[in-house]
């Protein structure tokens, strides 16, 4: 396993490719993300492409935001994080969407596109994602979920419930991070989207502490889970979120099988809180009921009020 990127080297690299889109910019220099926010204020916050061709939807959604070149500079290494949790329909990020993102990154000049995961090769094979990754010329980097030495302790200065994350070191070998969840139901906190997907970078045993001992289910335990996720999000900022809202389960999440709906939407945006708030509307949730998104808003990670965001929906 390659060593994590050093701070000096990191700063040099981010300077080279543009601070705003750099992975982990908020970890070290939170203010570096301001240029992205300024761009968002002028343009579209949430781009939604609707249609039965999910690959085309993905390309369109990213194009609406200004194209992949806005996020991926020539020569950069890109980390992407699809959700491969279960092969049940509507429970994983579709291979077509991952294909499109890899292709766009390469066209933008990325030298490497790395799919990160601590799940097993079987998860990637069962969902068809390993084939998509291979055929598109990206790398599948599976990190042992039980080997703590492969994860880097990351303090969370603003953490309320989580004071330290343990992020896979492999993540820090990249310059840009694109978060690629499928949005779906979650039996615990009712919703999963961009913010919760970051648990896929965190050490699995650390993630277990997001859930209370003995799997308590009273409200304080669910709140603890949501607060930990919101805290984790304060130290990792995706340059871009591309969310699979094409086919998703609205019951029995996150594993399924569950009631499947097919909005046929791919949602892209920089503001993860706004993107998640938009995704709750896909199956009629009330964003006020989703603690995690509210905590994200309180942590100033983004805008929860969709009336204050510019949403562009386009049929492909």
């Amino acid at each position: 396993m390659a060593k994590g990127i050093g701070r000096r080297e990191f700063v040099k690299k981010t300077a080279k490719i543009g601070f705003s889109a750099a992975l982990g910019g908020s970890v070290i220099f939170p203010w570096l993300n301001s240029s992205v926010q300024a761009y968002d204020r002028k343009g579209i916050d949430i781009a939604v492409a609707i249609g039965s061709d999910y690959l085309k939807n993905t390309i369109k959604a990213v194009d609406l935001l200004g194209g992949m070149k806005r996020f991926v500079k020539k020569g950069s290494k890109v980390a992407i994080l699809p959700n491969t949790q279960s092969r049940h329909p509507g429970a994983y990020t579709k291979p077509e969407i991952v294909r499109a993102v890899i292709r766009m990154c390469k066209e933008a000049g990325a030298v490497e596109v790395n799919c990160l995961s601590w799940l097993t090769p079987k998860h990637w094979a069962d969902t068809g994602l390993d084939q998509a990754v291979k055929e598109e010329g990206a790398n599948l980097k599976l990190v042992d979920s039980d080997d703590e030495s492969l994860y880097k302790p990351v303090p969370i200065p603003k953490g309320v419930s989580l004071k330290e994350a343990q992020i896979m070191k492999e993540f820090y070998n990249n310059d840009v991070f694109i978060n690629m969840p499928v949005t779906k139901d979650h039996a615990g906190n009712k919703f999963t989207g961009t913010m919760k997907n970051l648990m896929g970078l965190n050490f699995r045993r650390k993630n277990r502490t997001f859930h209370k001992e003995g799997w308590q289910t009273e409200q304080s335990a669910i709140e603890h889970l949501d607060k930990c996720i919101a805290d984790l999000n304060t130290v990792i900022k995706p340059a871009l979120c591309v969310v699979d809202g094409t086919e998703l389960i609205t019951t029995n999440g996150p594993m399924g099988p569950g009631k499947l709906i097919k909005p046929q939407k791919v949602i892209a945006g920089v503001d993860r809180v706004a993107v998640d708030a938009y995704c709750t509307t896909l199956w009629g949730l009330d964003v006020r009921d989703i603690i995690m998104i509210n905590k994200g808003y309180e942590n100033k990670l983004g805008q929860i009020d969709l009336k204050k965001t510019k949403i562009e929906e386009v049929k492909v």
């Binding site: 979650h186 039996a187 999963t192 919760k196 859930h211 003995g214 799997w215 289910t217 999440g253 594993m255």
Partner: peptide, 14 residues
């Protein structure tokens, strides 16, 4: 169960 179901194990335990 957490190993298998990852998130969302709470409801089964409840």
């Amino acid at each position: 169960l957490y190993e298998y179901i990852n998130g969302g194990a709470e409801i089964y335990h409840e």
